[in-house]
Design a protein around this nucleic acid. Structure first.
Lengths: 361, 361
DNA sequence: ATTAGCACTCGAGGTCAGAGAGTGCCAATA
DNA sequence: TATTGGCACTCTCTGACCTCGAGTGCTAAT
């Protein structure tokens, strides 16, 4: 059933006023904000119809109206004006990403922090990549008791490990280990590594010191890591600035829920169709999110790897501005990380750096 | 001034009862819990003396007594029984650390999460190491457009970066770059790298493609990273389960404060004397921590590197058990990470792994 | 179809009295 | 002299009750 033009305007006014003030909105307020040429009595009739249609509800008989999840849905789908980011906001995102992209190893956490500070809601960042394989091993001989394993992976990440030995090992052994691993352990996923393979590699290099095992467990570790999506929340404390979470029990419940990376990974399944996805209240699958809303945006990390960046807040969320901001972040990130993309405008290197680093200890 | 035996017992009883219940403690309760052979009237007299000495206070005239920060201080220093961890608790820590130590790259975060879940308070972890230098560069030639920089650092961490080039580069160039960097950029701290050095390196290898600059900025980046202590909070949401933070404004203020890594790094300065340090209420330097308590334990990460692990909570904190748990975690970690230490009992490898890895993208 | 008017509803916030917990003091006691 | 029972007093907490104001729903007039 189609809403009349006036109903649309009234619903919009109610939703936006409620988003702004967090107070139930009365007919008088609507009459004065949405400048339709009619009195509050007329608005009252319309409001009561909108309520019976399920778009609004009353906390109690003599209070103003509050949007229902369905009301928000209509608002998000049809009514809200697509928020235009101001030049400052766009610049802020652009500048921030340029800075952060220098250190790609903290990409996920930086983008999460950025989204949270920009929207003033807790933000989550999830980076999922298809299972990678190791495309190449290098063993760097340091001294008789030390070597470094460097593994380059199919998704163009590099991982390393420093190995200290209580016994001496020769360069030749390192050399042999390197060839065997490059011959047998590259291009395969974790489940394809069998104890049998390891034992035969051990025999092949004549290893009596367990070196093969060490390298193999490193390989298994990084392969299995590459299957687990990185996921974290940032700015969870911002939840407490929202009036709907002034009840510490509610706040605690939601915060505990979103602090668990496993719960966040469940959001991976959400299909954003490359754009922004809004999940309002009961539309969320997780019980704990049923009174809250989630806005998600997907970005392209190059290849098949996808990143998800999202924001959690009360159903009374500023959907328009949040969606615009997340969408902008996602878009700019995709541009910078996307595969065949041109060098991003802000990176003033002659070279396209697609790597980074990390520490170990 | 020395407290009488009986006063000590009474103070202890008040502190422990208050820690347990978060309710002001009355004379009657003390009379029944601390089994001194005297009536509540006697206790009342003693309580009022303890109050005038500054160890206890009353929220209002006719309420029970609550410990002052000074009262907690006496309790922590002299009265409390050193909590013995149960066998299960010890085992839990031990098992947990064994698991976590497999992936040393997430050491800080894992230890933080462990401390938080064990104590049920927010936990912070700070890992500080003295400025490191690069002890060795290896450049791995992948193909004409790609190479990996691997830098081994003086603190035995390894970092890497994958470099993609829009132009071709030869193995010989990689070779030359490697020697120049090993000759000129090892063993020095960040501030010793000058634009002049970079330019002269550029000339030495006859580099027209900016490769030298890329490697140098990588060096600068990892050297400056090594100076910044890693710091983070875990389980901040647990704050909300404490009655003293049911006021969302208080909770928000503290949470925001401890969510800022820079604030945490200030705690680095705290001297724990190798053991556990308790900071009660106003003993904290930071204004924001003045109504809260912090328990810190230091562990030895090998060499001069120190880790700090801590817990924040209300002044009404279970000091005894928290101190015992943190101390145990710190001790076990030091054993495993400490320099010349014997291989830790739980690590069932033949080899002592002192490395790990990390990803980039 | 719209509107003014009005009775009605309900929550927020204020006041008040009674209950309960705990104190401080005093006089009696060992 | 230290301890104790007794008792008046103080202060908070709770629930009952009230009023105020915002907002509704309905009706009759336009």
């Amino acid at each position: 059933m189609e809403l009349s033009e006036r109903k649309k305007k009234i619903l919009t006014a109610v939703v936006e006023e409620y988003i702004r003030t967090a107070e139930p909105v009365g007919s008088k307020t609507v009459a004065s904000t949405a400048k339709l040429g009619c009195s509050s009595a007329t608005i009252r009739n319309e409001l009561s119809e909108l309520a019976s249609m399920g778009y609004l509800e009353q906390p109690h008989t003599s209070a103003g109206r509050v949007p229902t999840p369905l009301g928000y849905r209509i608002y998000v789908n049809e009514l809200m004006e697509r928020h235009k980011l101001s030049l400052e906001e766009t610049e802020e995102i652009n500048r921030s990403l340029n800075e952060k992209l220098r250190e790609l190893d903290h990409l996920v956490s930086n983008v999460g922090a950025l989204a949270s500070s920009l929207t003033n809601y807790p933000a989550m960042a999830i980076a999922a990549s298809p299972p990678a394989t190791i495309s190449r091993f290098d063993l760097i001989y340091i001294d008789a008791n030390t070597f470094i394993i460097v593994a380059m992976m199919s998704n163009n990440t590099v991982r390393n490990k420093l190995v200290r030995l209580p016994v001496s090992v020769g360069q030749d052994m390192i050399q042999r280990l390197s060839s065997v691993f490059n011959a047998n352990f590259t291009g395969i996923t974790e489940d394809r590594i069998t104890p049998l393979m390891i034992r035969s590699a051990e025999r092949a290099v004549d290893d009596t010191m367990g070196l093969t095992g060490v390298i193999a467990s490193f390989a298994i570790e990084i392969l299995s890591d590459s299957q687990t999506a990185e996921a974290a929340v940032y700015g969870a404390n911002r939840l407490l600035s929202q009036p709907e979470y002034r009840d510490p029990d509610k706040a605690h419940a939601l915060m505990s829920y979103i602090s668990d990376a496993d719960h966040l990974r469940e959001l991976q399944l959400t299909d954003c169709g490359g754009g922004v996805r809004v999940l309002i209240g009961p539309e969320n699958v997780a019980e704990e999110l049923r009174d809250s809303s989630v806005v998600l945006a997907e970005y392209d990390m190059g290849g098949e790897a996808k990143g998800l960046i999202g924001v959690v807040g009360p159903t009374r969320m500023d959907y328009s501005s949040v969606a615009a901001k997340l969408s902008m972040i996602a878009e700019m990130l995709s541009m910078r990380l996307g595969n065949g993309a041109a060098p991003p405008p802000g990176l003033d290197n002659k070279l396209v750096i697609k790597g980074d680093s990390n520490e170990q200890q």
